[in-house]
């Protein structure tokens, strides 16, 4: 009887697992197969021409995506990693009750922000960067709003990576007369580096795949941006425009296929990084 229940339970779990994998495979498979049918070398080397027909390739959107990712990481990485270091290595050592309360409030804030839908950051970015700071629909507005979106992600992964560094390293370094900062810089950060990199790549993945937040901060110009204050169109945003405002559903699919492959590659790189972590600590 017990064996029967066990077998039944396993079958249910197995089917659920299989179902989940099948759904995922069919989404990715559909997009990739359908999309790749329309991909030609020119698709990558020409820019969209605008208009209802949705003609042209995706060159300018690739360039915009790269600009956007680089700019966002330039802002978000130092702030996010710095905040993570502060929370784990300094604030947790604090003795005063006041500092502890500030820290736990900050942590609560970070966790809440990590779960907020991206359009909320978009609205905030629209109100602050686009309108109040008069940056307009631009790379600058989008990168700043995007930073707000991924800073919580980077803070959390940095915290996790730092907490995973054994305290014996900290003790060993301090006992040799190293200062707290020297210990962080020379021992802790190198050990936590793969974990922190994972957080940064996760953040980059968010920027590549988010749409709504950039709809209200980056605008939608299909031209290659020529300055920080120029509007643009990331690949994900381009998919949205093609699908909603043109007849070129095939081009939307093709762009989506490129996007899916890009995101898969980024996730593979995270896997490689985390495998390096496990190998190094063994």
């Amino acid at each position: 009887m017990r064996k029967l229940v066990q077998n039944a339970a396993f079958t249910v779990f197995w089917m659920a697992g299989l179902g989940a994998v099948l759904i995922m495979l069919s989404v990715v498979g559909y997009v990739v197969f359908k999309g790749f049918a329309d991909i030609t070398p020119e698709f990558f080397t020409t820019s969209p021409r605008g208009g209802l027909s949705g003609e042209g390739g995706i060159q300018s959107t690739i360039i915009t995506t790269v600009y956007l990712v680089v700019l966002t990481l330039l802002v978000a990485t130092p702030l996010g990693v710095g905040a993570g270091i502060y929370l784990v290595e300094y604030a947790d050592q604090a003795r005063s009750g006041f500092m502890k309360r500030i820290t736990s409030a900050a942590r609560f804030g970070v966790e809440t922000l990590a779960g907020v839908p991206s359009i909320i950051f978009g609205l905030f970015g629209y109100a602050l960067f686009v309108t109040a700071l008069k940056l307009g629909f631009s790379l600058a507005s989008a990168a700043l709003a995007g930073s707000c979106l991924i800073i919580p992600v980077i803070i959390r992964t940095t915290e996790e990576a730092l907490k995973a560094v054994p305290d014996s390293y900290r003790e060993g370094s301090l006992a040799l007369g190293a200062s707290r900062w020297e210990t962080i810089w020379k021992v802790i950060l190198p050990s936590a580096f793969p974990g922190i990199t994972t957080g940064i790549v996760l953040g980059a993945g968010r920027i590549v795949s988010e749409t709504a937040i950039f709809f209200v901060t980056l605008g939608g110009s299909y031209r290659t941006p020529t300055s920080l204050l120029a509007s643009g169109r990331s690949m994900a945003l381009h998919v949205y425009y093609l699908a909603m405002e043109t007849r070129a559903f095939d081009k939307a699919m093709a762009t989506a296929a490129v996007l899916v492959v890009l995101v898969i590659l980024m996730n593979l790189s995270i896997n490689m990084i985390s495998r390096r972590i496990t190998r190094d600590t063994r």
Binding site: S168, G172, A175, D280
Partner: peptide, 12 residues
């Protein structure tokens, strides 16, 4: 100087 209970070389 100090030597600890568990050997704690840095991962270097």
């Amino acid at each position: 100087g100090m030597v600890f209970q568990r050997p704690n070389p840095f991962p270097k």
